[in-house]
Simulated scan of single mutants.
Amino acid sequence: MSDAQTDEKRSRPVFWKAYSFGLVTGAFFLVSWVGQFVFQAIGFANEASDHGGTFSWAEYWPDFLASTFENWQSEFLQLIWQAAGLMLFYFWGSSQSREGDQRLEAKVDALLRERGIDPVGIDRQTRKLAESE
Rank of each mutant, 00 (worst) to 15 (best):
L104A: 14
W92S: 15
L77F: 12
S94A: 10
G116V: 03
T54F: 07
G52R: 01
A106K: 14
M1S: 09
R113M: 07
Q40P: 00
V34E: 03
A4R: 14
E47D: 13
I80N: 07
R103I: 13
F64C: 02
K9T: 05
Q73M: 08
M87W: 11
D118S: 02
A58Y: 02
E105V: 06
V120L: 06
A66S: 06
Q5K: 13
G53V: 00
G43C: 04
F37I: 09
W33H: 05
H51C: 02
R12T: 03
E59A: 13
Q78C: 06
S97F: 01
S56L: 06
V120S: 08
M1D: 07
S95E: 13
S32F: 05
E59S: 09
G35H: 04
E114L: 11
Q125L: 15
V38N: 07
P119T: 01
L65C: 07
V31L: 14
Q40W: 07
L104S: 10
S49Y: 06
R12K: 14
V120T: 09
D109W: 00
S56Q: 09
W81G: 11
D118K: 01
W81C: 08
T68C: 05
Y90I: 04
W33A: 09
P62L: 04
F28G: 09
R98F: 03
I117R: 12
A110E: 13
S67K: 13
A83C: 02
S95A: 14
T68P: 00
V38A: 10
D109G: 02
L30E: 03
T54G: 15
F55L: 01
T68A: 10
S56P: 03
S56D: 14
L65F: 09
R10N: 14
E8Q: 14
Q5C: 06
G93H: 02
Q125Y: 05
L129K: 10
F21E: 13
F15W: 07
F76Y: 13
L77E: 04
A66H: 06
G121E: 11
D63F: 09
S49Q: 15
F76V: 11
G85K: 06
F91E: 07
W81A: 14
G26D: 04
G53K: 01
Q36D: 11
K107D: 12
P62R: 03
Y90F: 12
N46L: 08
W92C: 15
V120C: 02
T54I: 06
Q78E: 07
E131I: 07
G93K: 03
E8K: 15
Q82F: 13
T6D: 12
W81E: 07
A18E: 13
S94H: 03
A27F: 14
F28T: 07
T25M: 15
R103T: 14
F91H: 11
K107Q: 15
R115Y: 06
D50L: 05
N71K: 09
S132Y: 00
Q82N: 08
R124Y: 05
T6L: 13
F89V: 13
L104C: 03
W81P: 00
F21R: 13
S20L: 08
